[in-house]
Design a protein around this nucleic acid. Structure first.
Length: 375
DNA sequence: AAAAACTACAACCGCTTTGAA
DNA sequence: TTTCAAAGCGGTTGTAGTTTT
């Protein structure tokens, strides 16, 4: 899309970089082409990779006879030329899944893409920015927090909103929020570097995904904190510095599944009382995080199952005529579509706000659809 | 019919992380 | 332990295409 010869930002950036003696973008090297790819270039790249395989991007252009930088080649291959890339409109079920995953993971586009076969992070990111975020806003929902926009005006949640997209300030924000707002129940699900490179290497960077569970309004998904944040540990949020649902990722076509290596589930705070979830997954395999994520996504499946069990118990106990205080997720009055009842109960969570968009798109086939995607 | 505004998305940039030397 | 190249990620930009005025 970009015209290399008319891109003011690129030329300005290159000039600025030269002036400050900083490293220039690889594409700024003299003689390297930029901008839209031609069919001929696509063919050259695809043919080369089909023959020689991916990798060694820096030297690939020269070997393939392309006047492009390696980064550009990699991007073109990953986002456009790979055979596994699915082109075309995002289906409603894919859209629904994106919404759910975004609510869980925030702007972790590569992670989200990893759960949606054939879709690239770039495509999902673009789709989010051009469609879904606007759709949410039009329905009065903050696309960052997935909470009703009018909730954002609530001063008690200001910190959370303000910091939701800030990796650097996340841990403090969480601590502040959880301490100042008793309704916030932070759930720490640390995961290692949710990155693609774990496949051959060991654990990557350890990042904790902190899901802020707001007992009234759901939770903010974007909070991420580095496990190395000592302040965070010092505040007792974690006992083990590497409490993680692990390292890992997925990726589109490399290893399939989320591939998260779990260590353990962290403390869950509830109204000032902390207790450790009685689930030791220290040595769990890669499926654990994937399963956990699935459980979060497949709320409906769990909820309906749970509902049935509860109803059966009620019938057996002849309590049908009595009023029983049941959690909202069980009564079905409202539930967080992204937090399964099972997962919520397992992790000590309750959430009872539902996105209209997601709610409207939910149906009985939901769990099956999600499973299909995931698998 | 032309201009302006809007939309979609490919591509680029800067930064971070990783692993090898 | 340090350095550096490679790879990857998320945010942003620029432009072609479409719609509206």
């Amino acid at each position: 899309m970009r015209n290399p010869s008319t891109s003011p930002s690129s030329t300005a950036a290159a000039a600025a970089a030269a002036a400050t003696n900083k490293s220039t973008p690889c594409c700024s090297k003299v003689g390297l082409k930029r901008g839209p790819w031609t069919p001929e270039e696509d063919e050259l790249l695809a043919n080369y990779i089909n023959k020689e395989g991916e990798g060694r991007w820096r030297t690939l252009p020269k070997r393939a006879g392309l006047l492009r930088c390696g980064k550009s080649c990699r991007l073109r291959w990953m986002n456009y030329l790979r055979p596994s890339v699915k082109r075309g409109h995002i289906a409603p079920d894919e859209e629904d899944l994106i919404l759910r995953l975004h609510r869980l993971l925030g702007n972790r586009w590569s992670l989200i893409a990893g759960r949606i076969p054939g879709r690239t992070d770039n495509e999902i990111k673009n789709y989010w920015n051009t469609h879904l975020s606007k759709k949410l806003i039009s329905q009065g929902i903050d696309p960052r927090t997935h909470k009703p926009l009018n909730q954002e005006l609530d001063p008690s949640s200001a910190d959370q909103v303000t910091n939701s997209n800030s990796k650097a300030s996340t841990s403090k924000a969480i601590l502040n929020s959880s301490s100042s707002n008793p309704n916030l129940t932070p759930m720490t699900v640390s995961s290692g570097h949710l990155d693609q490179r774990h496949t051959s290497a060991g654990c990557g960077r350890m990042i904790s995904s902190i899901m802020m569970i707001n007992k009234e309004n759901g939770y903010s998904p974007n909070a991420l904190v580095d496990d190395h944040d000592s302040e965070y540990h010092q505040n007792g949020m974690m006992e083990n510095p590497y409490t993680s649902l692990s390292n890992c990722d997925h990726h589109h076509d490399d290893d399939g599944g989320l591939g998260l290596r779990s260590n353990n589930v962290n403390n869950v705070f509830n109204e000032g009382l902390s207790y450790e979830v009685d689930v030791d997954i220290n040595y769990c395999n890669d499926d654990v995080f994937s399963s956990f994520l699935n459980s979060l996504i497949n709320e409906d499946a769990f909820a309906s199952q749970h509902n049935q069990q509860v109803l059966q118990q009620q019938q057996q106990q002849h309590l049908s005529n009595e009023t029983i205080a049941l959690p909202n997720t069980i009564t079905g009055s409202s539930s967080d579509p992204l937090v399964s009842t099972a997962a919520a109960s397992t992790f000590g969570l309750e959430a009872n706000w539902e996105s209209p968009i997601m709610a409207s798109s939910l149906n009985q086939d939901e769990s099956r659809r999600v499973d299909e995607h995931v698998e």
